[in-house]
Design a protein around this nucleic acid. Structure first.
Lengths: 346, 346
DNA sequence: GATTAGCAGTCATTGATGGAGAGTGCTAAT
DNA sequence: ATTAGCACTCTCCATCAATGACTGCTAATC
């Protein structure tokens, strides 16, 4: 395609993203100082329209990008605009020094995505079942209660208090046995293990069996993937602005809050490279009227940004990439060090 | 006030809550079989209007309750409608058997409030600083890492891993010392304690000092009150329906998600009895166009329902009361038993 | 052959107009 | 105190015409 036509398409997408108004040949001439006449631009526009990259809402209206047009724009024209350094810095700082349990970390990440992009941000937790067991620890709290802590590569997975009158010695024994058997195994193996042994009624000591039962229930509860979404309110006015039906818009927000459905979808579509799904490119019916920019991180985790089709893709891409890599790094770090440490910890 | 006028007011509020349409004398006559003429009802309406309990949107429109009218309705006419038994049961069951960390429990409670009321539900966490320390436990995970678990009356408050090469014996010693000193004290005392001792540079063993530092940072982090809000999307269409401005409506939702501002407000207004704040009765500007039904629970926790002024107060009251008492009971229980136990725990 | 000026044609948007219908308040009768 | 009847008010909706923003086409120009 000739350079000027590309330029015209880019300008149309750009301007439309900014203003939300159909773009006329006049406007284009005025805002971006091009040295051709409006008629020439109109001719180019006709060609672009024939290729299905832009369209008119009615015969004498200005032009608006089609989804195919956005796609073209995203594929060829996005120049990853650097985030405004200062704003980034302030936010990132608060992020870096927060020392958190993994759930809280992911929630904060979603928050950051939302705030930096000004759309909705989401983070699907990693597949914990792909991480390996670091340790299982039993601690006697008092005469009747025992605390159990399960730690994986990514930090503490779960803790719980069970009632049990075991002596300290017995606890140590159980603990040593379990750790020797299970340390270093993937959590899904551990779960399978726990399940099998919990069912072998009389094979083992009832104490060990109780421990397996606990392990099983804790893992079943915690291996569920969690979805953290933030900034959904900010998205809503934008969707309505776009001519979206109110009920449909709420449907979208509800979907994004539904860990099961949305998580499943993300899982199926994600890849390590940042990508966009624009409008009808989305397989999920409810998402047909918005766009998704997202990438994989860590152990099959997914994060990204959800916005209207008329989204600032350039910003969305750079934010997602940046935050994604950052989170990746943090998780890798906590992995290397075993588990996160507390700020000020000795 | 004469009985028939009361009846008319009740019918107007009732009908308006249901349909959202201004109520005419005709409608009232048709829907509720009263044996007077429409003219009589109109006369009553004029009186009610003079008292400021109802109003017209324009001279020849039907009547609509004023906030004062709702207030009257709430104070005198709410008959706590029993929740539909079956629906309640199904939901409550899933609630009862979920064995959870306190944060998750509160989140679920907010979810229940939202679902049962069909408005937005919120739960402000209890003041943990008013609860008492049950125990502090240190566990050596491996050569370099030590796990610290802080348990209060309401369950596990926080856990963290710190890097420290202490021997098992040293850990036992520190642990015994801290527990002897601090067990049974209120968490705010514990925090003050930790702060003081962490600053006494050379007084104590650096190890103990590290422990105090940890305690301080963990408590500072965790004693913040948390706000769990659910069902906000469901509220939005209702607010818009009510003629609310979109931006304002989003403002409201943002406010309710803001733990700091909204929490502070709830804290200042709450009392152990369920109560409603209707429209402009709210001191918080943003909330002037909606209504709050809420009560206190546990250690200065607050929970309730946020809806439009045209809210089904009867339902909101019964849901809030029911869930509030239920949560109260669960917390009291976990208090008595020390901490929550895991389902299937030995 | 690509670009441009000029112009007729298209269509959303806006504001004015008027009739229909719903509901009230008042008056006079019961 | 209640009721029937009626005039009055005000919203809601559809219709209509004027306005103005853009385009597509044609013919002239570089």
């Amino acid at each position: 395609m000739e350079d000027r036509k590309k330029w015209v398409l880019k300008a149309i997408v750009d301007h439309y993203i900014r203003t939300g108004q159909p773009v006329s040949s006049q406007t284009l001439l005025g805002e971006y100082g091009l040295s051709v006449s409006s008629a020439t631009i109109r001719n180019d526009m006709m060609d672009l329209e024939e290729q299905g990259l832009i369209r008119k809402e009615y015969s004498s209206a200005g032009r608006v990008p089609t989804e195919k047009g956005y796609r073209f724009f995203v594929d060829w024209l996005v120049e990853l605009s650097e985030l405004h350094r200062q704003a980034e810095h302030a936010l990132i700082e608060s992020y870096r020094f927060q020392r958190l349990e993994i759930g809280e970390l992911l929630r904060q990440t979603a928050f950051l995505l939302a705030n930096l992009s000004s759309y909705a941000g989401f983070v699907l937790s990693p597949r914990l079942e792909e991480t390996r067991l670091e340790s299982i620890t039993f601690v006697k709290l008092d005469a009747q209660n025992v605390l159990v802590v399960i730690v994986s590569e990514l930090g503490i997975i779960d803790h719980a208090v069970i009632r049990s009158a075991l002596s300290e010695a017995e606890i140590r024994e159980v603990s040593a046995l379990l750790n020797a058997t299970l340390r270093g195994r993937r959590l899904d193996e551990v779960r399978a293990f726990a399940l099998r042994f919990a069912e072998e009624e009389d094979w083992y000591d009832p104490i060990v069996r109780g421990a397996f039962l606990l392990l099983k229930s804790a893992l079943e509860r915690r291996l569920e993937r969690r979805l953290h979404a933030e900034g959904l309110f900010r998205l809503l006015p934008r969707l309505l602005e776009e001519g979206q039906d109110l009920a449909d818009a709420c449907e979208i927000l509800a979907l994004v809050s539904d860990a099961h459905r949305f998580g499943r979808y993300l899982e199926s579509e994600a890849s390590p490279r940042v990508q966009a799904l624009i409008g009808k490119e989305n397989a999920l019916r409810d998402l047909r009227s918005c766009s998704l920019v997202f990438m994989e991180y860590g152990f099959s985790g997914v994060l990204g940004v959800l916005g209207p089709i008329r989204m600032d893709y350039s910003k969305a891409f750079s934010v997602t990439t940046y935050i994604g890599n950052r989170l990746q790094a943090i998780l890798a770090l906590s992995h290397r060090e075993g588990v996160p440490t507390v700020e000020g910890g000795a």
